Simulated scan of single mutants.
Amino acid sequence: MNTLSYGLLALLTANPLTGYELTQGIKPLWRAGHSQIYPLLQSMEEKGFIRHERIEQSDKPDKKIYTITEEGISVLQEWVRLPAEPAVLRDELHFKLYSLWLTEPDEAKALLQRRMEFNRSELQRYNLLIKANEALLDERGETRELKATTFGRYLLLQKRVMAMKASIEFCEWAIGELERSSPPPG
C-alpha cells in the first residue's frame, strides 16, 4: 500500500465517509484527486481494509459510505509505528499524527523526536549552504535581487531553513503536549 492509502484509512478512523468526503478531507494533508482515490478505495476493499454501504438516492446516483475494518485498523496501526519519512511535499507525518491515537505515548514521542533530529541536521546543512551562496553572491558582485542568477536558490534555502525551524518548534511543542497528556510511569 502507498502512503495515500494509509491516509485514507486514517481519515476513516474518525467516521465513515463517502469517496467525495475522503477527497475533500485529504486535500489539506496530501495532494490527490478522485482518479487516485477511487481505485485505492476499490483495492483496499478487495484486501479487506475497508467496506462500503450503498445508499440509494432518488434524485442522484447512489453513493457509497466507506468504513474502516478491524483489519484496516490493524494495518494502519502497524504503519503508524514505523518511522515517518523526511518531510516532503507529501509528508506522511501528517497522516501519522492524525492516527497517533493508535500508538503508545512513548512511540508517539519517538516519532516526533526522530523528525526533530532530522530537522536539526537539515537546518545545519541549509545554514552552511546559505553561507556558501552568500559568498558566491559577493564573489560575482550579484545582489539579492530577482534577476540575480542565485536569488531563487537563496530564497529556497531560506524557505527550507524557516521550514526546519518551524518543524523543530512544532515537534518540541507536540512532545510537550504528549508529556502533559500522558500519565507518569509507575
Rank of each mutant, 00 (worst) to 15 (best):
G176F: 01
W79T: 13
L93V: 04
T69Y: 03
K131H: 08
Y126W: 10
N133I: 06
P83E: 05
F170S: 04
K131Q: 13
W79K: 09
Q124F: 05
L102F: 05
I68F: 08
V161S: 00
A135V: 09
G141H: 05
R144Q: 14
F95E: 07
A166L: 13
E85M: 08
V88I: 05
F95C: 04
A132V: 05
G72S: 10
M164K: 07
L155I: 11
W173P: 00
K165S: 06
Q124G: 08
L137Y: 06
K159P: 01
R180A: 14
A132W: 04
L93P: 03
K131E: 15
R140T: 12
E85G: 10
V161M: 00
K147H: 09
R153S: 03
P83Y: 00
F95I: 05
I68P: 07
P105S: 01
L146S: 11
V161W: 00
S99Y: 14
N119G: 02
L111Y: 01
Q124T: 13
E71I: 13
T150A: 11
K96S: 12
I168Y: 05
Q124A: 12
A84G: 07
K147I: 07
E71F: 09
E92T: 15
S181Y: 03
A174H: 08
F118G: 02
A108H: 02
S74Y: 07
F118L: 06
V80M: 09
K109Q: 06
R160H: 14
D59H: 13
S99A: 15
E139C: 07
I175D: 10
S121T: 13
L128K: 13
T149M: 06
E85S: 12
K109N: 02
W79N: 13
V80H: 07
E172C: 00
G152N: 02
F118Y: 11
R140H: 08
E117Y: 09
I68M: 08
N127M: 08
E122T: 01
Y126T: 11
F95A: 09
R125Q: 10
L178A: 03
D91S: 06
C171R: 00
E179F: 04
E71S: 14
V80R: 09
L137D: 12
L178G: 01
E71M: 13
I130D: 03
E85W: 07
Q158F: 03
A135G: 06
E117D: 10
D59F: 14
E142A: 07
R81N: 15
R140V: 13
H94A: 12
R180Q: 15
K60N: 13
A84R: 01
Y66A: 09
R140I: 12
L89W: 06
L97K: 07
K165A: 06
Y154M: 11
